[in-house]
Design a protein around this nucleic acid. Structure first.
Lengths: 94, 94
DNA sequence: CTTAATATTGTCATTATTTGACAAGTCAAT
DNA sequence: ATTGACTTGTCAAATAATGACAATATTAAG
């Protein structure tokens, strides 16, 4: 499940409309729709707002939001998995 | 070893000057210097050229170049490692 | 079926980020 | 002191990301 699917599920669980969340994020409904479908990416600031609006936690949203970005970066790359291993080592080091 | 360190090592092994490689990449020496020190990022097209110019392989350069980008994305993130796990699963799926 | 509400699509302007060139600087070896 | 190799700082140009708006499609209700 990617970030868009996740916030859509949470939104529907709370019976909220796109336009309500969009208003809170101060963007228009089309923009929110695009974020939900993964056509546009939410900014971190917006993700943090969504954590509150959707009654969830950073731990629930941030990793999946970051993972989308990593995936976008590597999805067409022959050496995508290899590069993940390297990045993981570097992350663990510091 | 990050991408910059890698190409610097290869460059010195071949006794090449920054200005020689910069000329081949059609950028100026300061720009090449910045790439070597990781202050700027090489474009993929430039990485592929460097593979040839430095007598190495894509397998040697691309993963480390991609890993730098993943690392940049996650280095200050609390959930960096968690997001790597998610991204890895998605990559393996397709 | 027709309307009304919700969500999506397409396009364009604005803004932010990235890339590169240039001028000036440091450092080391003569 | 001069030369050659590299680095630093700043600015302009190119590119990508963000958002608003208009129009369209989809769904639900009466």
């Amino acid at each position: 499940m990617d970030f868009g699917e996740k916030i859509k599920a949470l939104r529907e669980k709370k019976d909220l409309l796109q336009r309500q969340l969009a208003a809170e994020l101060q963007i228009d409904t089309p923009m929110f729709s695009k974020i939900e479908r993964g056509e546009r990416r939410a900014k971190k600031e917006q993700v943090l707002l969504l954590v509150k609006l959707l009654d969830t936690t950073e731990e629930e949203l941030l990793p999946i939001w970051l993972a989308d970005q990593v995936y976008d970066l590597l999805k067409d790359e022959k050496f995508g998995l290899a590069s993940l291993e390297i990045a993981e080592r570097k992350l663990k080091d510091n």
